[in-house]
Amino acid sequence: MKTARVAHSGAIHTATPVDGDSTARLRLADGRTVAEADVVWLPPFDVGSIIALGLNYADHVKELAKELTVTTQDEPLVFLKGPGSLVGHQGATRRPAGVAFMHYECELAVVIGRPARNVRGSDAMAHVAGYTVCNDYAVRDHLENWYRPNLRVKNRDGGTALGPWFVPAELVPDPHALQLRTLVNGRVTQQGSTAQMIHRIPALIEYLSSFMSLQPGDVILTGTPDGVVNVSEGDEVVCEIDGIGRLVNHIVGDAIFGR
């Protein structure tokens, strides 16, 4: 069953959806049901290391072809993110004043469930606990260039939304056959399929575990397809992955954060 983590009445709870409830309620682990609107959504599992992929969709590489000096034959472009970058479902992400181009990135997030070190690709999926949806924002103004994400772009506080659900791996027959899309204020602006990944999940786990130990709770953000567009203060951004979830995020300005 898919699960969430929420804050309610001063405590953190594991929650599940109430099937067939048209009023959008959640069932907490202690049996109580609460309205979704009455909780604060957190990332749906205890997050360890956050490992992100850049340029892992062929169409996104083509979209940026004029700016790139890498190809689909290169090693995975991998970078790490700090825990402060995370925000949950229905959270707010700040668009700094004065930036010209800030965009979303709808991504399938892979959650590690078993320690992995020097794992072969053929064995890699046994180390996957499940999946969630990620929206990993980038401010293009701050990039040193278009193909090497830097710290200022990818580790901004609250710049990476995760959730709402953790979906166990056994409920996802083929993670490389999932349709994903992004909607800005209700309009579809990005569509793709996880079938377009250049480096698939087994290859990523084999590559990463060849030089670093992966631990339960570590999450791999697998990249985004083409179709990224500029978002503005006041926008609602929704990232959907079929069978995984619908992640809602709101763009706010500096004033919300007292800046």
Results as ranks from 00 to 15, higher is better:
Glu240Tyr: 04
Asn150Lys: 04
His8Asp: 01
Val119Gln: 01
Phe166Asn: 00
Gly48Leu: 00
Val18Trp: 08
Asp174Gln: 01
Phe79Pro: 08
Glu206Asp: 00
Pro175Val: 00
Arg181Ser: 15
Ile256Ser: 08
Lys2Tyr: 09
Arg117Ala: 13
Asp30Ile: 00
Val248Pro: 01
Val188Ile: 14
Asp235Pro: 13
Ile198Thr: 05
Leu204Arg: 03
Asp30Asn: 14
Gly54Ile: 05
Met102Gln: 12
Gly98Pro: 13
Leu53Asp: 09
Pro202Ser: 09
Tyr131Gly: 01
Thr93Asp: 01
Asp123Leu: 11
Val229Asp: 02
Glu170Val: 07
Asp174Asn: 14
Asp157Met: 05
Ser213Phe: 10
Asp19His: 10
Ala161Gln: 03
Asp254Asn: 05
Gln190Asn: 10
Gly159Thr: 10
Gln215Cys: 02
Asp136Ser: 13
Gln191Pro: 01
Leu162His: 08
Asp174Cys: 01
Asp141Val: 07
His13Glu: 03
Gly54Pro: 09
Arg156Gly: 15
Lys154His: 11
Asn249Trp: 03
Arg27Asp: 14
Met102Cys: 04
Gly54Glu: 08
Ala100Arg: 12
Ser213Lys: 14
Ser22His: 03
Tyr131Ile: 01
Glu240His: 11
Ala169Gly: 07
Ala97Glu: 15
Ser209Tyr: 06
Arg25Asn: 15
Thr132His: 03
Ala195Leu: 13
